[in-house]
Write a protein that binds this DNA or RNA. Structure first.
Lengths: 129, 129
DNA sequence: CAGTATCCCTGTTGATACTG
DNA sequence: CAGTATCAACAGGGATACTG
């Protein structure tokens, strides 16, 4: 079936599959802290320590994991600057910038969901006998 | 800071937070099989068994979990039709339809990421000594 | 400074079997 | 038909301590 949700037949799966475009996109931003990191890196190139300063509650280990994953995914570039001490700079690359409209749409959708809950409509009651 | 990624200050968190619109949206579609279920339910109202037929590899338990969660989230409606045997119909409600543009954007972004990988640009090499 | 190495803990997923 | 109950298996996330 091909409709506007699945415009080209690449999304017609009956089980989760890495081939599905939707899963590809979700995989690119998956993981706790990842969208926060993408937000910071879309503002500016940052070093490991710079990221720690910006997100103080994020542990070294998870930060390192997240960054390595983003580099693996081809979303972030990692450049070592030799010196005393060494520094390592992280920045978004092309594929990472492809994520920007998605993050904007996530923000927009989340905002609308929140106003649907808080604002007008009362919670829809689903009958559970 | 307020920019086009964080247009209204509701997204300025330094740690993952349910208040963040981005997390709200991600939470709404979170979970393995969830986007597949949303795809099916956005095509038509379906019963529990109808969903099982459409997604044969999805177990009863996970299907029931996913549906209960979607109902909790206010995204899906659940209506019991008494009879012999009983049937239960699931359908998207307003908040669920708010997710449609997001799913479309996920599809679009995933498609572009896939073509960036497979097609043109060679993988960007990141230096790892 | 920029990470690694362990270890643990929890949540999620799934297989199987059973019920109103 | 539409689930629930139980249990096993695994992955993600995090605290702490250590290193080139």
């Amino acid at each position: 079936m091909v409709d506007d949700l699945v415009p080209d037949g690449a999304g017609n799966h009956t089980a989760p599959s890495a081939d599905c475009p939707v899963e590809t996109a979700l995989a690119a931003i998956a993981g706790k802290w990842t969208t926060l990191l993408l937000r910071e890196l879309s503002r500016a190139e940052l070093t490991f320590g710079g990221l720690k300063d910006t997100l103080p509650e994020l542990s070294d280990k998870v930060l390192a994991d997240r960054l390595a994953t983003l580099v693996d995914r081809g979303v972030v570039d990692r450049v070592v600057h030799r010196g005393y001490p060494n520094r390592v700079a992280y920045s978004l690359i092309d594929a990472g910038r492809e994520l920007r409209p998605l993050l904007i749409e996530l923000y927009r959708t989340g905002t609308r969901l929140q106003s649907l809950r808080g604002g007008g409509g009362d919670a829809v009651s689903s009958q559970r006998p």
